[in-house]
Write a protein that binds this DNA or RNA. Structure first.
Lengths: 192, 192
DNA sequence: TGACAAATAGACAGATCGGTCTGTATATAT
DNA sequence: ATATATACAGACCGATCTGTCTATTTGTCA
């Protein structure tokens, strides 16, 4: 059973994601979650803290989903790296997080609203992106890359490009465009 | 001499870009631009219209800057395509729009705040991105690509990835990561 | 049953929001 | 010099924002 705190964080994440952080008022989160205002301020000191909690929840949720999708796809690390882009396409099509749909990357969106790199939400976004790069680098090492860090940065950049293209322009096929480029990179960087 | 309307739009663009659209109030734009409230509402029917005017201004400004930077770089279309990423790096370092600095792409940020694809600001963002792809496709044709549209989409995706990486993670070198990948794509897609 | 903790509803405060309105000052052109 | 357009300053409106407070209800455990 979900605690009142979880109820708040999940509702906040959903509304922040679909309507933006500044555009979403506390009252809407309360009415949609059915939680009283005092309960919110018992768990969180301010709206900013709730924003951070929602993004933290998203961080865990997204990494769990992504790593699971990639591990499930294949035992081969090279195939796992490529399956990143198959997972992205499912996400873009709204098949990954059914209660949220697809409205771009919550962390890119957060960085757009809180452009100051020292803002806690922006810092969390940076950390989230770094975690993904680190995970990719591990797989690149396992796949036998001579420069796994560089390869991981390249793949991560393709991922970000695909996300933005899918969201801003509505082109879900961007995942396949990125996958094609990634295939060429892996062919060149990994031993046959 | 700048008209009052231009004064408004320039100030609005600067504040929207650095602080976000919803977080920037009308009163701040008025006080920083030194324009009276009634003058604003004589030129624009609402804040939403001012947002659109600011983004339209940014669209012109950015495309002018980018096309000029690429044309200036070289007469060779292949070199022009690669110079896209040199221009990006200058932008990331804050050397392109000195009154604005770098706070990500205004259109990616707008799409993050206005996630509904039918929102006028989101539509404008989509249009802006399409204009750039079209411009790249023309250059790809000039460079002799057999499939200029696909190549242009690939380069555009690299551009978006570099922008997001630079903004969210603060890694200005992302422009060079993208350029390396782009070089490989051009080597494979263009006649020697 | 009675005590205690947790969550409820909802009024309230103070600030800020977008937008309207009145009245005054400035500048240009005839 | 007078007419006209434009922009000014700033009061004002209703709505909404975050956050605080009181008083009531609910649920649990002894």
């Amino acid at each position: 059973m979900k605690s009142r705190r979880d109820e708040l964080v999940d509702t906040a994440l959903r509304l922040f994601y679909k309507q933006g952080f500044n555009a979403t008022g506390i009252d809407k989160i309360l009415s949609e979650s059915g939680v009283a205002k005092m309960t919110l301020y018992k768990h969180f000191g301010s709206k900013d803290e709730l924003i951070l909690a929602a993004l933290t929840r998203r961080d865990e949720q997204f990494l769990d989903w992504l790593t699971n999708a990639m591990e499930t796809a294949s035992p081969d690390p090279r195939a796992q790296l490529l399956s990143l882009f198959d997972a992205l396409e499912k996400w873009f099509r709204g098949q990954a997080f059914k209660d949220l749909g697809f409205a771009g990357c919550a962390f890119i969106n957060a960085s757009g609203e809180f452009t100051d790199p020292d803002h806690p939400a922006h810092r969390l976004a940076k950390q989230h992106k770094q975690e993904i790069v680190d995970h990719l680098a591990k797989l690149c090492t396992k796949a036998g890359a001579t420069d796994p860090e560089t390869l991981a940065e390249q793949l991560a950049l393709l991922k970000e490009g695909a996300i933005v293209t899918a969201h801003v322009r509505g082109i879900t096929e961007s995942a396949r465009v990125a996958k094609t480029i990634a295939t060429g990179l892996l062919d060149a960087a990994l031993p046959a």
